[in-house]
Amino acid sequence: MAVTGAVMVLFLVAHMIGNLKIFLGHDSFNEYAHALRTLGEPILPYRTLLTITEIVLVASVGLHMWAAISLSRRAAHARPVKYVAKKSQAGGYTTHIMRWGGVTIVLFVIYHLLDLTFGVVNPKGFDSEPADRMVAGFDPSRWWVTLIYAVAVVMVGLHLRHGIWSAFQTLGWAKRNRYHVLRVTAAAVSVVLVLGFLAPPLAITFGVVK
């Protein structure tokens, strides 16, 4: 969970920075999208690094889900008879939505790939410039798409608020006197990611970026 989660967090940071390029104009964004594919050229063939990244990400998502499912199953086996009354004491809202949050995120990722990567559910289709797909996708008339993205991104933020902290604990790098710093860092990273991911779709829907 911790290692695959960390891979995905690193990806999200890079992805967020890439998305923000839309604020520098269509060309900047398209160049960036193109650069992702030609990274490492001419030493490496076209799309080598991108394909490797994609494989690592798919493997991370798969292993992360596998770990989540086996944890849930072990939990179900460990408590076959449920409590009649059960009250949470740790007050961790985010810890209790990890599983459903994860499911929501994966459904969103599928939709997101169909929308902006493969263009299947995007008005511009597959044969278009990445920036055009993005701007058309979040057109004010498609406000509900922006809404889906916003909800999903907030879910990612909540998932990571617990997840980042939890990963340090899982890897044995957490110590009582560092808990506060770790929690604040986890929350800060989550907030930065949420804002960074929300900015482009909102800016497009509200006409700031055309």
Binding site: M1, S70, L71, R74, A75, H77, A78, R79, S88, Q89, A90, G92, T95, H96, M98, H162, W165, S166, F168, Q169, T170, G172, W173, A174, K175, R176, Y179
Partner: peptide, 25 residues
């Protein structure tokens, strides 16, 4: 047959001896 830890912190909260969560780390 105990389950796996997901760092929820529910244990420390009810522990009568206040065993801290970083013992698990």
């Amino acid at each position: 047959g105990f389950g796996g830890c997901t760092n929820t912190g529910e244990c420390t909260a009810v522990c009568p001896k206040g065993i801290p969560l970083d013992a698990i780390a």
